[in-house]
Design a protein around this nucleic acid. Sequence first.
DNA 1: TATTGTTATACTCTATAACTATA
DNA 2: TATAGTTATAGAGTATAACAATA
Lengths: 161, 161
Amino acid sequence: MHTPAVEADLGWALGSVFRGYLRATGEALAGLPGGPRGYQVLTSAEQGEPSSQLALAHRLGVDRTVMTYLIDDLERSGLVERRPDPADRRARLLSATAAGRARLAEATEALRRAEDHVLAPLNPAERDQLRDLLRKLATEAPGENACRVVADVAALEGGSC
Amino acid sequence: MHTPAVEADLGWALGSVFRGYLRATGEALAGLPGGPRGYQVLTSAEQGEPSSQLALAHRLGVDRTVMTYLIDDLERSGLVERRPDPADRRARLLSATAAGRARLAEATEALRRAEDHVLAPLNPAERDQLRDLLRKLATEAPGENACRVVADVAALEGGSC
DNA sequence: TATTGTTATACTCTATAACTATA
DNA sequence: TATAGTTATAGAGTATAACAATA
């Protein structure tokens, strides 16, 4: 065959695209603490979503300790603020500062250009297709959001989480 | 808006899908040295592609030192063999052993089931679409295969690598 | 007793630098 | 001199465990 087997592997393609995305956005988000992850935290903070650090950590697929470090860096840079949640004083409410909102706007624009670069081989219709398919997969993936992450082979073989 | 901003981010979707893929395949390929990466190396070795470790490392997006460790583990498990290339005795030719080919066949089947699990939210047509789009993106990405990986903002802004 | 967040620690993965052997 | 591969070392990123505060 002409196409080597590795190039036909879904995992290879996925990893390859992901690396390309991280490289492009790493340049676009240079200086923003946490890179793409920091951007996502900043986005969430700016939205003022009433989610705890723990809930946000789950959505972003990171450990809660990693979330602490991420927010530490963003707070040190004056982009976000932590306040105790009046309703549950164990939890912290995250909010973006004025500087954070400004930085987010810049980052969003830089990110848009970087994504255009990454998606360059696809035409506009294909780009929309890819975004839709990935979003669908990410939001409806079994075990990712619907269920909690459990490394259970039986569940994997089963079907409904 | 109802859909929180993070879920609309391409990077979030890509990372989320990639994590789900790694988790599912991590279970499917349990015991195979190197996991998905080891599978890709084994695949390449079985194909008998006349590529050096260095060339393979580039295709897989890893450092050449990582490739050494990967092959070390696969060789220790008796799945692949290294032989000096007669044409260039600095280089090594990789080949799969009988055990390696058998293990690859098992792994391929396990991987197929894991991918079905990961792609469960998509219908058959959508799965094909996603595979095609990712493959197109991975093989035609600027700076990934066509050009060498260089962290050059000017090139990024430019267009042709 | 369970949970949120933090800290300290350890581990894994990956990259850097120096080396050998070939070219 | 440059390149393929290896090794040792260092670094980034991540997870584990113990702790404080609160529920």
